[in-house]
Computed example of a mutant assay.
Amino acid sequence: MLGHFGFSYVGAIYLVMLFVPNIIWSKHQPVGYTSDGENRILSVFERIGEFAVTCTALIFSDFNIKLDSFWSLWLLISAIFMLLYEIYWIRYFRSQKMLEDFYSSLLGIPVAGATLPVISFLMLGIYGKNIWMLISVIILGIGHIGIHLGHKKQLNK
């Protein structure tokens, strides 16, 4: 449960799937987007969670593919959520890039751009039976999802 040190190629793939759309997004932000007024406590949680999830995903070999047990089902579920995250981004980039598009849901999952990767990494942590990923992703989720829900609430006013 504590983890086995070693490079995780699955973690690296997930991080590429996470970072590439975000890099593209930096040039295609929604009209009227600003991070002004974000809750400082949630921002601290988000930053700590981002750092911790990134490091944990790379330094523990627990996330590499092992098809020898029922735990592989958790990896499959995790991969499905990461693929849904990519679908969310494709839909966003094909949209008019409005705030409504950015904070939209996907298949009933609210603020999908924030929620889907958090769920994906949570499932990855369960698959790897890695407490550090589970702790890291909970911290990330509190901050990241919380911030996005706050923006969505402001948008709906």
Rank of each mutant, 00 (worst) to 15 (best):
G143N: 00
G3F: 10
Q96R: 11
C55Q: 01
H151E: 11
I126W: 07
L75W: 10
N130D: 00
I145E: 00
F45P: 02
V44N: 05
N22Q: 15
K27Y: 15
G6Q: 08
W132A: 07
I109R: 14
P110A: 09
L124V: 01
R94W: 08
L124M: 11
M17K: 01
I138Q: 01
M1C: 12
S61Q: 11
L76D: 00
E100R: 13
R47H: 13
I147C: 04
T115K: 00
M17G: 13
N22R: 15
I109N: 14
A12L: 15
L58G: 02
H148Y: 12
Y85L: 13
S78C: 08
F7T: 07
W25S: 02
V118D: 09
L106F: 14
G32S: 11
G49D: 10
E50K: 13
G11D: 09
H4Q: 15
M82S: 07
G125Q: 03
M17W: 15
M98N: 11
Y103A: 09
M82N: 03
V137L: 11
I145V: 15
G108S: 03
L15D: 00
W71D: 13
W25A: 12
L83K: 00
S72N: 07
A52V: 14
W132D: 02
S120I: 00
V53D: 06
N22V: 03
Y88P: 01
I77N: 05
E86M: 13
F93T: 05
S120V: 05
L149A: 00
Y85C: 08
F5I: 08
A112I: 08
R40A: 09
G49L: 09
I48P: 10
K152P: 03
F81Y: 13
M123L: 15
F81D: 03
F5H: 06
F102Y: 12
R94N: 14
L134F: 07
L149H: 09
E100D: 15
G108Q: 04
Y33W: 14
P117F: 01
Q154W: 10
I90E: 01
S95T: 03
P110K: 08
G3C: 07
L107E: 03
N64A: 06
L140T: 02
T56K: 09
L75P: 07
G150T: 03
G128Q: 08
K97P: 04
N130A: 05
I13T: 12
E86N: 07
K153H: 08
Y127N: 05
H148I: 04
L2Y: 12
C55H: 02
I135A: 12
I109M: 08
D68P: 04
H148G: 00
